[in-house]
Design a protein around this nucleic acid. Structure first.
Lengths: 222, 222
DNA sequence: CCAAAAGTGTTCTATGTACACCCATGC
DNA sequence: GCATGGGTGTACATAGAACACTTTTGG
């Protein structure tokens, strides 16, 4: 499957999803028969009839039955396999899937599986580096954009939102401060409904798509 | 010069430099003979014997005689020329050159020219979009990293540093606040020397390469 | 009535912002 | 001695961090 002009061009995806109290990542079954089961990032050879972004979407459909989700470009790596000429170029995309996505809805479950990021199988070093970078990017973006809502269903409670942040950032947040600030930012609005569970029912909120999602950055200098 | 497998892969660079009181960008003479002089972003077809980053460096050498400078990946575009099949993929790099770089040191001056970003020739829409994105990235990064020092010579006065920020960000900064904060951050250190000019000589400072360059981000939520 | 999660304000500290004058040099 | 840019501190406003109890429901 080598492309003819001395370079293999690939498109890869790193897809994150929140399930229960864990952040999970989508991996694909590698096709290296010598080493038993090997997991890799989902990806495919570039197809010049599609755009890069469409190829990433197609790969999400193929591996996890995901029709649409938040998708952004992560990075383009050259020489992921430095030992092998001709060298390869990999355009990697980064995606977030809402927590209510049904993980069994994969069109071809054999192509992919979800793993908690802190209990995932170890992959080849290149893939590990990409995943580590994707995680860093997720944490950064969570801090200064509203990207966290991409991991939640359309409506959610304030506690669910807070837990999302705590899981991804890996630290506990103060409930009162969290609520005060997110309400002050007015990027969410209450719905009419409540969610019942253990304890007192909680108000459901929804993200306001017209919200200004970026926080003003704190400058290194005034 | 079309690559054989249905996709043309290019590497482009967006290079910024500070000259006098202006931010300048490096452009290349386009080779479209029908439209008179046309300026484009410097770039070349991908060469599979080099890495993407090395190709970007080679292009900087070729267009402006720049041996080494700050270089990071900006974005990978597909379909820069949507009307023409086979479509093209362009990996774009972003570079900053110190102000003391000699603009006449280009090995082949005919290949490139420096233009003030606010008085540059209009380019094709794709290039304009890339340049606009590069400028946005420069401003963002200036605010939360120490990337501004890449635009300055090894030693500089505090006023020069402040002017760098003012030029790139496009706004005036308060001298006392600027100095207090940058010194408190201890990412620069005074040298023994002074620079004389009009008025009182100014202390020269240098960037501390061991400095922690990232400011902690201001969070959207606590 | 008890367990479990939801909801709610105040105080203190740190950070950011606004602002005006004296200093050292060259001409 | 004057024009030019270099250098310095304080007061006020805003934002962030720490902290504990009451409310509502289901079992």
């Amino acid at each position: 499957m080598r492309q003819p002009n001395g370079v293999n061009l690939y498109v890869y995806i790193v897809v994150f999803c929140l399930r229960q109290i864990r952040l999970e990542v989508l991996l694909a079954a590698g096709d290296n028969p010598t080493q038993g089961q090997q997991w890799v990032l989902p990806g495919q050879l570039f197809d010049p009839t599609l755009s890069l972004e469409n190829l990433a979407q197609q790969e999400m459909q193929r591996c996890a039955g995901i029709q649409q989700a938040y998708l952004e470009q992560l990075y383009t790596y050259s020489d992921l396999e430095p030992t092998s000429k001709p060298h390869s170029i990999s355009v990697v995309y980064f995606s977030l899937v809402p927590a209510d996505h049904d993980p069994t809805a994969s069109s071809h479950p054999a192509f992919g599986g979800w793993f908690p990021v802190d209990r995932r199988p170890i992959m080849a070093e290149d893939y590990e580096n990409i995943l580590a970078y994707a995680l860093r990017r997720l944490r950064y973006k969570l801090e200064y954009t509203a990207v966290g809502f991409e991991l939640l269903p359309d409506t959610f409670t304030l506690s669910e939102l807070q837990h999302t942040y705590e899981i991804v950032l890996g630290e506990k947040l103060d409930k009162r401060n969290f609520r005060r600030r997110i309400l002050a930012a007015s990027i969410i609005e209450p719905t009419a409904s409540l969610r019942s569970g253990e304890g007192r029912p909680a108000r459901l909120y929804r993200y306001r798509p017209d919200a200004v999602a970026e926080v003003k950055t704190r400058r290194l200098f005034p």
